[in-house]
Structure formats: structure tokens, C-alpha cells
Amino acid sequence: MTKFTHLIKLSVGTEGVSDLADWQKTVAARTSDGLPRHVTRMWPKREDEVLNGGSIYWVIKGVILCRQTILRLDEVTGHDGIRRCAIVLDPELVRVEPTQKRAFQGWRYLKPEDAPADLSRAKEGEADLPPSLSAALAEIGVR
């Protein structure tokens, strides 16, 4: 059995999944081939595991709300000449069971068994709950 792992990352400045989707449509958040990306200073040491079926789970306002499959890692060089990692993502934002997550810096690895389950397609079409309400519901075990 081939091993894989996920990443988890705060989506700073977004109010909900729709804000994240809007940001990823901007030129600054896209690769030259039009895919969304997130640029970070650190390159995952467990690159092979991340690229073997991993996703990035997005924490919005203290709650994990969605994920995107990681397609590849591109090397990019900033205006300052420093090498960085662009995490290139599938454009589909998959909603997951809202799960509270404390703030942290950068990204972290997330074991597959610790990742929230995807929501059913029927629930994906529902209107976004405010992140604070999602957090409150997750805290009491209602998702």
C-alpha cells in the first residue's frame, strides 16, 4: 500500500469558501497554465507522500471547511531572489465536515485518518454558514 499525507493551511483574510474561490481566480493566485496555487517558503520534506493523493485542507476562521487535491509542487523565485514552493491545486474546492482547528503558522502535515470527511454532494449546494456558526456547531458535535 502506498503511503500518502495531506497538508493543512490557514486561509488568512477569507471569510468563507466563496472568498477562497474568488481569490484563487485572480492572476496572482494562478500558475501559467491557469491552475490555482499557494506559494509558501518551505518545501514539503515529505513531497512524495503529498503528491501521492494528498490534499490541502483549508482552515477558514478557525474551522476546516474545504480541501483541494494537490497536483504538483513548482519551484518559484520571488522578487527577492528566494526560492519558494508553489503548491499547485485542483480547482475544485471540496467541502468537508466543519472541524475546529486552532491557529498555527505556515502549513502542517495532516494524517489521512485525522482529515475531516467530505460532505455529500447534496450538502455542498447548501448556502455557506458563517464560520463562527460552523465552529459552534463543530464544537458541540453537530455538523
Score class of each variant (00 low, 15 high):
residue 115 A to C: 07
residue 123 K to C: 09
residue 41 R to N: 13
residue 122 A to K: 14
residue 76 V to D: 04
residue 65 L to C: 13
residue 11 S to M: 14
residue 78 G to L: 01
residue 79 H to E: 14
residue 50 V to F: 02
residue 52 N to P: 02
residue 143 R to V: 06
residue 117 A to M: 13
residue 36 P to N: 03
residue 30 R to K: 15
residue 133 L to W: 01
residue 19 D to Q: 04
residue 93 L to T: 08
residue 1 M to I: 12
residue 3 K to P: 08
residue 55 S to Q: 02
residue 9 K to L: 15
residue 128 D to S: 14
residue 65 L to I: 08
residue 106 G to V: 11
residue 33 D to W: 06
residue 88 V to G: 03
residue 64 I to E: 07
residue 138 A to F: 04
residue 26 T to R: 08
residue 29 A to V: 00
residue 112 P to N: 03
residue 94 V to E: 05
residue 139 E to V: 08
residue 47 E to R: 15
residue 134 S to N: 13
residue 138 A to E: 06
residue 49 E to Q: 12
residue 139 E to Y: 09
residue 120 S to E: 12
residue 79 H to A: 14
residue 137 L to Y: 09
residue 114 D to G: 10
residue 81 G to T: 10
residue 93 L to D: 05
residue 38 H to E: 09
residue 98 P to H: 05
residue 40 T to R: 11
residue 107 W to K: 06
residue 48 D to N: 07
residue 55 S to V: 00
residue 127 A to W: 10
residue 6 H to I: 01
residue 57 Y to R: 06
residue 35 L to D: 11
residue 69 T to V: 13
residue 7 L to Q: 05
residue 16 G to S: 04
residue 93 L to Q: 09
residue 137 L to S: 04
residue 2 T to G: 11
residue 72 R to G: 10
residue 15 E to N: 15
residue 14 T to L: 10
residue 12 V to W: 09
residue 105 Q to K: 08
residue 141 G to F: 01
residue 132 S to D: 15
residue 105 Q to S: 13
residue 11 S to A: 15
residue 9 K to Y: 13
residue 97 E to H: 09
residue 15 E to P: 08
residue 133 L to H: 01
residue 22 D to Q: 00
residue 15 E to I: 10
residue 12 V to K: 10
residue 71 L to W: 07
residue 25 K to E: 14
residue 47 E to G: 08
residue 48 D to F: 00
residue 111 K to R: 15
residue 132 S to G: 07
residue 4 F to Y: 12
residue 50 V to E: 02
residue 99 T to F: 01
residue 49 E to W: 06
residue 66 C to S: 14
residue 133 L to Q: 08
residue 67 R to H: 07
residue 57 Y to F: 15
residue 127 A to G: 10
residue 91 P to M: 00
residue 141 G to K: 03
residue 59 V to E: 10
residue 141 G to R: 08
residue 42 M to V: 09
residue 118 D to H: 05
residue 135 A to P: 03
residue 123 K to W: 12
residue 95 R to V: 01
residue 27 V to P: 11
residue 7 L to P: 04
residue 120 S to L: 10
residue 56 I to N: 02
residue 46 R to M: 00
residue 64 I to H: 06
residue 28 A to C: 04
residue 107 W to I: 00
